[in-house]
């Protein structure tokens, strides 16, 4: 007969993140709540908006507004400091570095487009990447990618293998880089076995494919683009979308009925057909991902809460940008609400 002690689970909690998670839990209380967002949406003008924003966690650095570009810098600054904090708290740099690598992929797109068009686009480079922009710039300019990390080198080789870089269509360039990025992220997350991030990436890719598919159908772009513009790695295989390429838009919700995306497609496509706007579909997609990220609250110790915090912060900054831009352009509150995820309303 087994002893009782044999039935006990071994104590294997990873308490490495006890401090990090504690800190994040404290910071999470300062994230914008529904009523903060409602007040920002209801602000009369940009001055009132900034005054209300000043009462939140953003209060210390709210800029005096003379130029809307300053506000964009202010938001980028906030995002960069959040990223730095998470990288500092992380004990799995392999995973947290992924957050910074997104900027590397963005910088790569910018530089490749700059080299094709012959335009100087250094101004748009993001300093938040793993690879300093100057190193990437030199590598692209000198066509010497030997010093770049493997993931960037491989991406550049993929693009060159697809077509000579000066003849490639801009959309294909973007799609190739995005595909390479998701493939790289999936391989890293799979290697470390982090199911939470795997689930997030899977949903992100699914939603990206769904939005891409709907956008391609709506804009009546060539069906062959479906073959090249969808990313692998989602829960719905690319073949599934290819089978639907002859389907009319209003038939899609039924075809997705057995998937977890049925509701958002149902509402999103109805709105697209009545209002001619993707706002509702995108709003529902963002809400879906934010709800998924909320699962990290159930994790006591681990990297998940840290990663979820950065991603939720991104959505929060996106919501602030949306409200500010609409206020700056004197758009009515209804237009703003149409574009904010339900979780904020």
């Amino acid at each position: 007969m087994k002893q009782l002690s044999e039935y006990r689970l071994p104590f294997t909690y990873n308490t490495h993140y006890a401090y990090g998670v504690g800190r994040i839990r404290a910071l999470e209380t300062r994230l914008l709540r529904r009523h903060d967002i409602s007040r920002l949406v209801g602000a009369e003008d940009t001055d009132a908006f900034l005054r209300i924003l000043g009462e939140t966690d953003y209060g210390e650095t709210v800029p005096s507004l003379s130029d809307p570009d300053h506000f964009e810098d202010f938001l980028s600054g906030h995002m960069a400091s959040t990223l730095n904090l998470i990288v500092h708290l992380s004990k799995n740099p392999e995973v947290t570095d992924l957050l910074k690598m997104r900027s590397d992929y963005y910088n790569l797109k910018i530089l490749l487009k700059g080299s094709i068009s012959g335009r100087d686009m250094e101004f748009f480079l993001s300093p938040s990447g793993q690879v300093p922009p100057a190193v990437l710039l030199r590598a692209i300019r000198d066509e010497d990618v030997g010093h770049l990390p493997g993931y960037l080198r491989q991406t550049i080789q993929t693009i060159e293998g697809f077509s000579p870089s000066d003849e490639i269509e801009p959309q294909s360039l973007d799609v190739l880089v995005d595909k390479a990025m998701f493939s790289h992220f999936l391989s890293v997350v799979m290697k470390v076995g982090m199911m939470f991030l795997w689930g997030w990436l899977e949903r992100e890719i699914d939603l990206l494919n769904i939005k891409t598919f709907v956008r391609l159908l709506w804009s009546q772009q060539a069906p062959e683009l479906l073959k090249t513009n969808l990313c692998d790695g989602g829960s719905l295989a690319v073949e599934f979308y290819r089978m639907l390429q002859e389907e009319p838009l209003d038939g899609l919700p039924q075809r997705f009925g057995q998937t977890r995306y049925a509701r958002l497609l149902d509402e999103g496509i109805a709105s697209l057909q009545t209002k001619g706007s993707f706002a509702r579909l995108e709003q529902l997609c963002d809400g879906f991902l934010i709800t998924y990220l909320g699962r990290a609250r159930l994790t006591t110790f681990g990297l998940e809460p840290l990663m979820a915090y950065v991603l939720i912060k991104e959505y929060e900054i996106k919501a602030i940008r949306t409200i500010f831009t609409c206020k700056w352009n004197h758009l009515p509150p209804e237009s703003i609400q149409e574009r904010l995820p339900d979780v904020y309303l």
Binding site: E72, I110, K113, P170, D174, R321, C326, L331, R339
Partner: peptide, 20 residues
């Protein structure tokens, strides 16, 4: 303007950097 409100300035610039 709506598109600009849900995308960062850098994303808009990057997206439209190379007209097709």
């Amino acid at each position: 303007t709506m598109a600009r409100s849900v995308m960062s300035r850098a994303s808009v610039e990057e997206a439209l950097a190379l007209p097709g």
